[in-house]
Nucleic acid binder design. Structure first.
Length: 509
RNA sequence: GGCCCGUUCGUCUAGGGGUUAGGACGCAUCCCUUUCACGGAUGAAACACGGGUUCGAUUCCCGUACGGGCUACCA
């Protein structure tokens, strides 16, 4: 039987980075096994529906390159892939389960159950309590029919028979056993006619011929219910295998990574930006933070999984080749943003300058900088070894785009000597004539010039850097000069010379 | 509270009955470089605890502790 796996997010907001990892593991598993990767939207909660969330999910998957083979927006013959469009299907199956005696109608209004929970410490709707509640198990058939005919609001609940062990063989965790007596009679079909997750996911996984369910650990406890559903429907022969993924934990402190942690720690926890009503609700995305999608994928893949060995950098094809569910760790993995940035740095280094130029383009444009690709390509070459995120190119390399207005005066006081003035005057008059105006020629000229003037390289180089960039941080001086060109180099030298004298004059005064 | 899952350097992890417990991020020192980085080298840093099983447990079993998840007409 060919492998078919699905990623089934619910459109209640931005897709969490943990969700992206779940999608990634499903994708890798599908590719590794020549299977099919399906995107299914689980929008059965009408109250939590968020407009735009579905489009966000699709755009996120596209950005990281996890393109579904089937699903909403991607075709396939097992549709519809949006659960809200399959309402009739679930209704039919829910009733079938009632007929088979594995489910029943319950008329208890939500308020009544709420009151029960208030009154009774650990109230659970199960085999113990259901006989005293308002459902088709205790009501006479005629009365049930009457209520149904009258359109009385009701739900359909799973009838869990006590006294049986439910064994699950989890592909990641091994054997897990649940006692059915501990399980509650889960609602399968809500009063609004929509199914709950439990019914919908089992029916859809069956109908869509899903072979492995790879999902978050938060689903492990309800898997016993799902197994009971497969049994109730008589689908045990084709029941999918289960694999429950460990959670992604907060960078610091306790608990799983939450949506709010992005704003809290100033780091992205979503693939793409997601606007929020308040600053705290606004979510930064990996894309907007300046990550290359390949880097984000590489980072995510290794957060909770490793194939063994010492390799850290994996192309997507290498990930596919190396992937196996058995190597997924059982324990939760803490989100480590420093490591994420390290991956991005490595991927930036590996990316050709011309490609980087394309990434820098919009960032430069946003700041009103030069945007011609040949120039940006050279910027990329000079900066790529010292950035972690794409915006660093313009934020840390600002002096390549704009005139120097701020100088590192501290260093000027240490390095500048008024006695250098004539020499620098000379340099600024003649440097523009160096031909070709490229780094090697410039370096040769300046070093030779220093010698001529009786100066050490250490006297002149730091000051030249300060003149061109204003700061002691940055690419090789001669590379910068070459990029800036003769006119700009001359201009900056002249401006710097005036500033240097002023700074010293201030001290003297 | 109940049920379920987990626990190797600070973090992500490799490993697995006998190892100097390996790698990566981060950190520190040094080299390269008259900048910042990159790169290279070196270093500090871990098997939660207690019982078994065993000639021998970090590795297998059982407890304990700690962490996590679930416990809705949410997913």
């Amino acid at each position: 039987m060919s492998v078919r796996v699905r990623f089934a997010p619910s459109p209640t907001g931005a897709l969490h980075i943990g969700g992206v990892r779940t999608a990634l593991y499903n994708y890798l598993f599908a590719r590794k096994n020549d299977g099919v990767f399906i995107l299914r939207i689980e929008d059965t909660d009408q109250n939590r529906f968020v407009p735009g969330a579905e489009a966000y999910i699709v755009e996120s998957l596209k950005w990281v390159g996890l393109i579904p083979d089937e699903g909403i927006d991607f075709g396939g013959s097992y549709g519809p892939y949006r659960q809200s469009e399959r309402k009739a299907v679930y209704r039919r199956y829910a009733h079938e389960l009632v007929e088979r005696g594995h489910a029943y109608y319950a008329f208890d209004p939500p308020e009544a159950l709420e009151a029960q929970r208030q009154a009774e410490e650990n109230f659970t709707y199960n085999y113990r309590t259901r006989t005293g509640l308002d459902n088709s198990l205790v009501l006479p058939d005629s009365r049930v029919q009457e209520l149904l005919d009258a359109g009385t609001p009701c739900v359909i609940r799973l009838k869990v028979e006590p006294g049986q062990d439910i064994h699950i063989h989890d592909l990641i965790r091994g054997d897990v056993v649940f006692q059915s007596s501990e399980l509650d009679d889960k609602v399968l079909l809500k009063a609004d006619g929509m199914p709950t997750y439990h019914l919908a996911n089992v029916v859809d996984d069956h109908l869509m011929e899903i072979t492995q369910v790879i999902r978050g650990e938060e689903w492990l406890p309800s898997t016993a219910h799902h197994v009971l559903l497969y049994r109730g429907f008589g689908w045990t022969e084709t029941m999918p295998q289960f694999a429950h993924l460990p959670l992604i934990l907060k960078p610091v402190g306790n608990g799983k990574l939450s949506k709010r942690d992005g704003a809290k720690f100033g780091m992205p926890v979503f693939p793409l930006d997601w606007p929020g009503e308040t600053p705290e609700a606004r979510s930064m995305g990996f894309r907007e933070a300046g990550f290359l999608p390949e880097a984000a994928i590489n980072f995510l893949a290794l957060l909770g999984w490793h194939p063994g060995g010492d390799q850290e950098i994996f192309t997507i094809d290498e990930l596919v080749q190396a992937f196996s569910l058995e190597h997924i760790n059982k324990g939760g993995a803490r989100f480590d943003y420093e490591k994420a940035k390290w991956f991005n740095q490595r991927y930036i280094q590996m990316t050709p300058d011309g490609v980087l130029a394309g990434h820098i383009h919009p960032l430069a444009a946003a700041r009103g900088y030069r945007t011609d690709l040949p120039f940006l390509t050279r910027v990329a070459a000079l900066m790529k070894d010292r950035v972690h995120l794409l915006p660093d190119f313009v934020e840390q390399g600002y002096f390549l785009f704009e005139p120097v207005t701020q100088y590192d005066d501290e260093t000027i006081r240490k390095k500048w000597n008024p006695a250098f003035h004539p020499a620098f005057e000379n340099l600024l008059e003649n440097i523009a004539q160096v031909a070709p105006f490229e780094a090697p020629a410039l370096e040769e000229y300046v070093r030779h010039f220093a010698q001529e003037q009786g100066l050490k390289p250490g006297d002149i180089l730091p000051l030249l850097r300060l003149a061109l960039a204003g700061t002691m941080k940055g690419p090789a001086v001669f590379d910068m000069a070459a990029l800036l060109g003769p006119a700009e180099t001359n201009r900056r030298l002249a401006g710097a010379l005036r500033h240097f004298s002023q700074v010293i004059a201030t001290i003297a005064g």
